[in-house]
């Protein structure tokens, strides 16, 4: 019967492939640099601020997350610089007109290689929004570029006298417009059902916003091969939030040896949550990370998970591929979290 099942699977897969989304919004996003992910420089290099006017400041707030009984550092030389830390980035812009019920519940730091970093902000209607959940949302992004907007397969729109282009497809739509000679703003909605005029109205309401945003987590250790790409904080309120930092390995420069490429993309993600919503899975091997109980488990596809119980509902989760158990434990043990972060914006319009 396997042959028959296989044929059914092939048929179903072809049918599903025909339901693939329109690639044009992706093409437009790539052309205008709309990135939900990007690259962060590592190894002690502070990330440049998103706006030229923003001040680059080293994180100097107390970092408390892992503290073994003897871990309090004695007075003396300052600690070694972190492998990855994030300087504040300018908030940039803010929509002054939002659909009823939406509140800001996520900020994603994106830093494309070789260009200025940016910040993408997310508003959702759900009180328990999670950075990884794809519920209905509105996103505002900033791209520092003077390149012309791609109008392929989009509808030209006027955003307060500025050139823009709107793409709409099923349950999501996307609007990019030139704010000034060096700045393109992007607005995307997923599952909110906003019409083109509604999207344009929101875009017209966008105004500059002073202030900066900082990621309240840094990595003290990172495997040499891995470069951090994004840092995202999201949560329902200032009392309940999480930070997700993701990175992966650059492919080797030049042609691969012997025509063979490395089997898998090496990656590492680090998630810190102030209040884990569910008990940690009981599988895996018990280990200790900086005095905290943890479980490490290898998956059959070569990936591994390390979950550290920090107590009080706080949890650190590392997911990795191509990273050894020892390296994961070392990374986890060197994570530093600002215990007094400014996250008052969570849950506000």
């Amino acid at each position: 019967m396997n042959t028959e099942v296989e044929e059914l699977v092939r048929e179903a897969q072809l049918h599903m492939a025909d339901r693939a989304p329109d690639p044009e919004p992706i093409r437009a996003a790539l052309a205008t640099g709309v990135a939900r992910r990007a690259r962060v420089r590592r190894t002690g290099l502070l990330v440049a601020a998103a706006a030229a006017a923003a001040t680059v400041v080293t994180l100097t707030v107390p970092m408390v997350a892992f503290r073994t009984p003897a871990a309090d550092p004695p007075a003396g030389p300052p600690p070694a610089p972190a492998a990855v830390e994030f300087a504040p980035v300018a908030l940039g812009f803010h929509p002054t007109r939002l659909p009823a019920g939406l509140a800001e519940r996520g900020r994603l730091l994106v830093l494309p290689e070789g260009t200025e970093p940016g910040l993408h902000r997310t508003w959702t209607a759900a009180a328990d929004a999670d950075p990884l959940d794809r519920r209905a949302r509105l996103e505002l992004g900033v791209r520092r570029t003077g390149e012309p907007l791609s109008t392929a397969d989009g509808t030209p729109v006027d955003v307060g006298g500025r050139e823009g282009v709107h793409h709409g497809a099923d349950s999501k739509s996307y609007l990019a417009w030139r704010y000034d000679d060096a700045t393109v703003l992007t607005l995307s909605e997923h599952g909110l059902g906003l019409s083109r005029p509604e999207m344009v109205a929101i875009a017209r309401s966008v105004r500059p916003e002073p202030g900066t945003f900082s990621v309240p987590v840094r990595l003290g250790v990172l495997p040499d091969a891995i470069a951090v790409e994004t840092a995202e904080i999201a949560g329902a309120s200032p009392r309940s939030w999480s930070v997700l930092i993701s990175g992966s390995e650059l492919p080797a420069a030049g042609p691969s040896r012997g025509g063979k490429e490395r089997a898998q993309v090496t990656f590492l993600s680090v998630t810190y949550a102030t209040s884990a919503p569910a008990p940690a899975p009981a599988d895996g091997r018990p280990v200790t990370v900086a005095g905290h109980p943890a479980r490490w488990s290898a998956e059959k596809d070569g990936q591994a998970v390390l979950i550290v119980d920090l107590g009080g509902g706080r949890r650190l989760t590392l997911t990795a591929s191509g990273v050894t158990e020892a390296e994961m434990i070392r990374v986890a043990g060197a994570v530093r979290v600002d215990d007094t972060p400014d996250v008052r914006w969570l849950g506000t319009p």
Binding site: Q13, M16, A17, R19, A20, P21, P23, P25, I26, A29, L30, V34, A35, R36, R37, A38, R39, P112, E113, G114, R134, S171, K172, H190, E229, S248, L250, P251
Partner: peptide, 28 residues
């Protein structure tokens, strides 16, 4: 995008994942 749709079995997720991956690929 078609490949991602078959892998994820979710057209919306396929779009998000393809875009995320291509943004990373573009940088590299």
């Amino acid at each position: 995008v078609r490949y991602a749709t078959v892998v994820t079995w979710d057209p919306d997720l396929a779009q998000d994942i393809t875009q995320n991956v291509l943004i990373r690929a573009q940088a590299r």
